[in-house]
């Protein structure tokens, strides 16, 4: 057997799980899909004392739209959410990003909240949560709190979750009508983690001929998803003409701080991020419409 021994619990009640999560053990890990955790355990990079499985907790299966907001419970797999979005529409940026996660065998088991709580900064979902202003609901034996995606991702594999807290739901707010979007990433092979990726949004102004608001979030360029604040004033009030896109590429190259690794150099990633960002803004503009 490859993984080290662990104590396994799969309670039926969320309260019971939260009590177990609050226990003072050195390393308690929550498992849902396990598509990041189990490989790490098979390599013994991770050897938790206790695994708490969410599989029996029906309350965490929630997937619905409430007051226009998409609510995704901790047991909802990426494949389940994608099927739902393909059937009912809405959140096209989220759907496009999820299609790029791993392979069908991963998406059919990996969960949305699991990927968020794991926070690999080259993964699609953390950046999507930042781009879409998701709110992340954490529960613990002591209570509950909501964390904005912008505050949630701290550094590599680190989030704002405290010991004893469980990410129970991710809430994606309604998207305004007419919003254009684009998702782009570069990976060495299909299904690999991205070398670099981009989420973009463009809303047209009242006249419909200029950019009213824009957003650009990069991933794979540092310790967490990078919302490129400077791009927003740069693009507002204009169109994605060659001068603006050139300025945007410069801005991305300045702000992105990717590192060298075995897959690509930091310089390559910076260059790729700049090109992807400009293309994504153009594409999001083309998809946007005046309202």
């Amino acid at each position: 057997m490859k993984p080290a021994q662990f104590d396994y619990r799969a309670p039926e009640q969320l309260d019971e799980l939260l009590e177990l999560l609050a226990d003072d053990l050195a390393d308690v890990r929550v498992i849902a899909g396990g598509q990041s955790l189990v490989p790490m355990m098979n390599f013994r990079l991770s050897a938790p004392e206790r695994l708490l499985d969410l599989r029996r907790i029906a309350a965490l299966e929630r997937l619905d739209v409430a007051d226009g907001e998409l609510v995704v419970g901790a047991r909802v797999t990426q494949a389940t959410l994608l099927r739902r979005l393909e059937r009912d529409g809405g959140w096209p940026l989220l759907a496009a990003g999820i299609r790029q996660i791993g392979h069908p065998q991963i998406r059919s088991r990996g969960t949305v909240c699991g990927s968020l709580a794991h926070h690999d900064p080259t993964a699609e979902l953390p950046a999507l949560a930042v781009a879409l202003d998701a709110r992340l609901l954490a529960r613990s034996a002591a209570g509950r709190r909501e964390i904005a995606a912008a505050e949630f991702f701290v550094s590599y594999y680190e989030t704002a979750l405290e010991p004893g807290e469980l990410l129970v739901e991710a809430v994606f707010p309604a998207q305004p009508p007419g919003r254009g979007w684009a998702f782009a990433e570069i990976a060495r092979r299909r299904g690999d983690f991205a070398l670099v990726g981009v989420d973009a949004h463009v809303d047209r102004d009242r006249g419909g001929e200029r950019i009213g608001a824009a957003r650009l979030v990069l991933f794979g360029v540092g310790e967490r998803p990078l919302r490129l604040d400077g791009a927003e004033p740069l693009l507002r009030g204009g169109r994605p003409d060659p001068e603006r896109l050139a300025a945007l590429r410069e801005l991305v190259a300045e702000r992105a701080a990717p590192v060298d690794d075995a897959h690509a150099s930091g310089d390559y990633r910076r260059h790729a991020a700049a090109q992807l960002a400009a293309r994504a803004i153009e594409q999001a503009w083309e998809r946007s419409r005046g309202v």
Binding site: Y8, G34, Q35, V38, N42, R55, I106, S108, R109
Partner: peptide, 16 residues
């Protein structure tokens, strides 16, 4: 296939 879905059996504990 686990409940009809293709999944990698090396990334699932039997107890799950």
């Amino acid at each position: 296939l686990v409940d009809g879905e293709p999944q990698r059996s090396c990334l699932i504990f039997a107890v799950q």
